[in-house]
Design a binder for these strands. Structure first.
Lengths: 180, 180
DNA sequence: ACAAACTATATCAGACTGATATATAATTTA
DNA sequence: TAAATTATATATCAGTCTGATATAGTTTGT
């Protein structure tokens, strides 16, 4: 097999915290892990069917809504998920359009490269503001932030903040290097 | 169309600097842009055929080696490449296995999470050393580093250094948060 | 002389993306 | 109240990217 299916584990991870439909899983992802993990319906539904077939999750029809299928993680699914959690993190190949464009920058006027980086910097800055607002509201909510498991939610957010700050620093450095 | 083919532009970018075979393009990528752009044969060869059909690159058979096909960028190809270079950078969906595992960390013993991050930190540290060695050897080579276009090569490398330093900082912060 | 490493192209299953289609329920607004 | 909009819910598809593998000739080192 070429690539390991990571969506499997994202879904099992979400279902380790709550039961719900494919739609609920997508909503949970968008609300909580979107800034470092992207999930889409095109992959969620086929993987849910596959996980059910393997007995890692179970399906129950909702009484209220005919359509709605509520998925829950099984003991076997929890086992499989924890097994994956213990495995070392795999190397992830990088693909940065920004750095690709910068490295071929000599093909276009220098001013356009500077413009491009300024635009990127703006995007990073508004993202940083979002992250900081999320951090602040999390720390304010003492009931949540004083739970022992809160560290697992604050750490990814801190990554976002630290990495975005670094990216902004790089933008500034690069703009001044291009100007100077 | 769902996703834009980025390999197209990576190949056109490489061919904007030099002519060569598919193998040469892969070699160039591995040597110079590998730390932020991954390319593989499985995509290079079909895209080369497609680019040739569109008249963006031209193929010439080598006199020495029957097999070898040498590709060069055409004027039309250069135009298409520059057009892409001028376009704003597209949003790239993130998928960080590290942060996914951290956020579901409550499923396994805390010590295992710390272990995991320590391993990741080691990897970042050795990567940082590589980047710093690359930077040093580039700055030593005055003939190269004093060229006006050198900024386009040093900037992506600087990104690698700054981003990796930030990642290490996050590892340290997170390990102490988990311990404390 | 032989093994190992390098050059070169090609193919494939499987993973992932983003767009789109469909249809009902709930909520808002004119 | 009716119309419009938004939310819920599932499904499909073309196109893109990955990593492994196959094949085969050339060069280099011992």
């Amino acid at each position: 097999m070429a690539i390991k299916n990571k969506t499997r584990y994202a879904i099992l991870g979400v279902l380790s915290l709550m039961s719900g439909s494919g739609y609920d899983i997508k909503k949970f992802c968008d609300k909580t892990i979107a800034h470092f993990w992207n999930e889409n319906f095109g992959h969620i539904y086929p993987v849910l069917a596959q996980l059910e077939e393997e007995g890692l999750i179970s399906k129950a029809a909702s009484s209220k809504d005919e359509r709605r299928k509520e998925y829950s993680i099984t003991a076997k699914g929890r086992e499989e998920f924890c097994k994956w959690m213990m495995e070392p993190i795999e190397f992830q190949p990088a693909r940065s359009e920004l750095l690709l464009k910068v490295s071929f920058g000599s093909n276009i006027p220098k001013e356009r490269v500077i413009e491009m980086i300024k635009l990127v910097k703006q995007r990073y800055e508004s993202r940083l503001e979002e992250y900081r607002a999320m951090e602040e509201s999390f720390l304010k909510n003492k009931k949540e932030s004083e739970k022992p498991e809160s560290v697992y939610w604050i750490a990814p957010l801190r990554y976002g903040i630290i990495a975005t700050e670094a990216a902004i620093k790089w933008c500034e450095e690069t703009i001044s290097r291009l100007n100077g």
